[in-house]
Write a protein that binds this DNA or RNA. Structure first.
Lengths: 175, 175, 175, 175
DNA sequence: AATGAATGAGTCTTCATTCAT
DNA sequence: GATGAATGAAGACTCATTCAT
């Protein structure tokens, strides 16, 4: 992967996350990456190919994060680590942009199955089970839904204080 | 408001909700509304003017719904009615499309302040207060965030069982 | 059919006939027709749609010409009229261009069935039959093949004297 | 001439003959020849240089064929050998493609003078003269025109029975 | 000799918008 | 109020060609 290829990838990631996939023109990506427009197509074939490449690259990072949660045995730690997803979302430009892109794409393309979340659900269900919750399955789903909501607010509602809200959840879940 | 104007409005509502604002061309709106493309601009000036008109029209419906919740004094009823937002989201084509559009636009344009939700928050805070919750403000915000998450799932995750999840919440909130 | 539409059509006809279909850019057609490039697509949908429109329009002219031959009962007159196809090929800019286009397209796109020539073959076979030729079918095909050859030379070989060659054929066929 | 150079040449020959010169991209030639695109330009300078090389290589083959006809003294044999051009057109992939390319290019680029055919005309004129035809010059031209027509049909009209047509000509010319 | 990265000009096409009628 | 013709700018993508290695 040449330097220019990397430039394209990260320029596109930021622009897609900021403006959306359709709304971002390949010419703007090229300009931001300081690259001729044609090069995008030579390397990624399509605008979609470009998107695919971005996603695939990020997916690996995501898997690592989930793996860390899934392997955790201490139930409270599972919950705590789950809430730390927020740190990824608020991470450096590239990491944060990637997570924002995930949600943007969900809404724009209605693509991206939740199946890759399945392992997280299993981990959460186990954790809630161990913690004695009566409906661990529902609790797990509920928590994941809540995280989608938090992401929505975090990315879209200017001034939303996600930290205080997460602290509240720490208290609520007693962790 | 002539019939053709209405046609344009509802055609645009559906298309914007389905495909997104940018991705929907005025020509497709015109075709779906059985109207010449020029007419859109005569009536709404802009593509954005068209969006504005849709939003404004829907806003009124939304206000009515929130008003009903805000005026409610029985705290458990406040919660129950809040969860009934789901029925609106699952409503007939136009109502459902309108709510979907709200979220789509949030992500696409990152516009639409939450201020119109402020009244709902107040109502929920009061309700949680009356119900003896220790942190009514945080509980209110938490519930609203949860609703955003539920909407995300409802619209995007094929096969998501929102009803069972809401029933779970009924139990959780003991209503 | 507005004036601009006609302009597009005849500009395209000339350019396609001169340079070929693929080699002619829609932007050059637009420029030659004094028209915005977009208009081509509004009226003809595609570059191919434009070609289709040209062909269909010319096809009618061709049918008329063949009809005149087919209805002729005097066999020598049938042959004479067949050779008059040359006058069409050498006709005014539009007519000449149309016939040239036919051959260009044959070679460029390998499209255009000969079935529309079938009626001409029948007429020629009958004529040769009446004139006592022993193999009227083969004579008919041979003459049509010869005409393809003449067209090839007429359009491509600078300085080819088609008239003297046709006069020779008049003598050969004794007409 | 290295092996890769040969690969390029024959890949280009086939593609040009199949799709036309303009319609064939250098990238497709490179792909078909299993060669980097740059190599085409290193060896042939231009896309046109590539064409030139193909033509020049083929020209030699053509000269050999014509030479055989020209040196023939028996007039009927001259005619017979002329009709055997068909065997070259129907020859193996490379030989057939080369002849098809000749005609394709005639129509696409309107290049390729007939002067290289001049020697064939002389041979035919002599033959017709010896055979006692009254207008040997015109007969010669006529036959060559006919061959262009036969080529047109052979390459473009699916199902055209060129053999039966040539047999008919054998009878007609009494050879 | 050979590659593969890189480019700039050009291709077809779509889009929001204007205007005469 | 309503149409449909018309446009200019921008969109994704392709192409012949160059150049460093």
């Amino acid at each position: 992967m040449t330097e220019k290829q990397e430039n394209i990838l990260s320029a596109a990631l930021e622009l897609f996350a900021e403006e959306g996939f359709k709304a971002t023109s390949t010419s703007r990506v090229a300009k931001k990456a300081n690259v001729s427009e044609g090069l995008i197509f030579r390397h990624f074939k399509n605008k979609e190919g470009l998107l695919e490449a971005i996603i695939q690259k990020g997916e690996e990072k995501a898997k690592l994060m989930f793996a860390d949660i899934v392997l955790e045995t201490e139930p409270k730690e599972v919950l705590r680590k789950t809430f730390q997803i927020k740190d990824a979302m608020a991470g450096d430009e590239k990491e944060g942009a990637f997570w924002k892109l995930q949600y943007k794409l969900k809404w724009e393309l209605e693509r991206y199955g939740e199946n890759k979340m399945e392992s997280l659900k299993v981990a959460l269900r186990n954790a809630f089970n161990k913690l004695g919750y009566e409906e661990p399955e529902e609790e797990a789903v509920n928590l994941m839904v809540l995280i989608d909501g938090l992401a929505t607010r975090f990315y879209l509602q200017e001034g939303f204080n996600i930290d205080s809200q997460i602290e509240f959840l720490y208290r609520k879940y007693n962790i």
